[in-house]
Design a protein around this nucleic acid. Structure first.
Lengths: 135, 135
DNA sequence: TATAAGTACGACTAACTAAGTCCGATTTCA
DNA sequence: TGAAATCGGACTTAGTTAGTCGTACTTATA
């Protein structure tokens, strides 16, 4: 039930790979997808999302590619998850972030409040892990 | 990405409802599904699973129903999740519990080990929450 | 200036999972 | 014997995830 999606896995592998390079080094999507046997098209999309969220920086054209634009010491895994999924990594209780109308049992739901604490505790754990700590 | 399934939500609501009753009190599926507006058939299945895992106890026939057979103080939310899903609540890194052959990028995956720590940290948080604490 | 190597991006398909439904069987009380 | 309950498998529907495809844009360089 709590499991990383393939997309997140691939993104983490790519980011970790780039973090190993020297500062300012360019990496292409092909290079990374080849080395780790990841589907090229899929990884390409992920790189674009990471780029839009300023986690990596893109250079188009021949000799183009991506560089890691964030310091691995500061870059949190939760940021990467957010960039790829487009939503916070932990949303145990959807109701909190939705209007009551979206939840069919809103008026009778008794477990919402207690689980908010659980949610923030898990959030804390995930927010603590940086890319640097994945080495 | 980390989100409770409807099944888990419904199961938690039912368990919490039963925990409010006096010790040994019988509850029927219909009674609970009516009160909280949950789909009867679905809840019935969940009750059966909880029963199989000895979290609740079933009594068949007229005047039958379920009683909570565990003390809410000791009953962990993670146990309920396991009973419903049939697997541990947190399996961030599938590879750990699988044979390497099942993971297409097993030999090249670099993020497995670092995430195991994350996994056990999240596990700890979830294992700490009991039904009693949901009141 | 043509070409190749790269990113950008939307649309589509396939596979899988979650949610919900249906139907019949069994148990038990009155 | 009939009603009220659990039991349990098969099925359908809806939504999500993973992956693919096609095309456009950008840029270095021969």
């Amino acid at each position: 039930m709590f499991q990383l999606s393939k997309k997140i896995e691939y993104a983490l592998i790519a980011i970790k790979h780039m973090a190993y390079g020297r500062r300012g080094q360019l990496f292409t999507t092909k290079e990374i997808s080849d080395k780790y046997q990841l589907p090229y098209d899929l990884l390409a999309k992920l790189m674009q999302k990471l780029s839009k969220h300023r986690i990596i920086e893109s250079y188009q054209g021949v000799n183009g590619g991506y560089i890691l634009s964030r310091n691995p010491v500061e870059l949190k895994v939760s940021e990467i998850i957010y960039a790829i999924e487009g939503k916070p990594s932990v949303t145990i209780v959807q109701c909190e972030s939705e209007t009551p109308e979206n939840c069919s049992i809103h008026t009778t739901c008794t477990i919402k409040n207690p689980l908010v604490k659980l949610q923030s505790n898990i959030n804390k754990v995930i927010d603590e892990l940086t890319v640097m700590e994945m080495f």
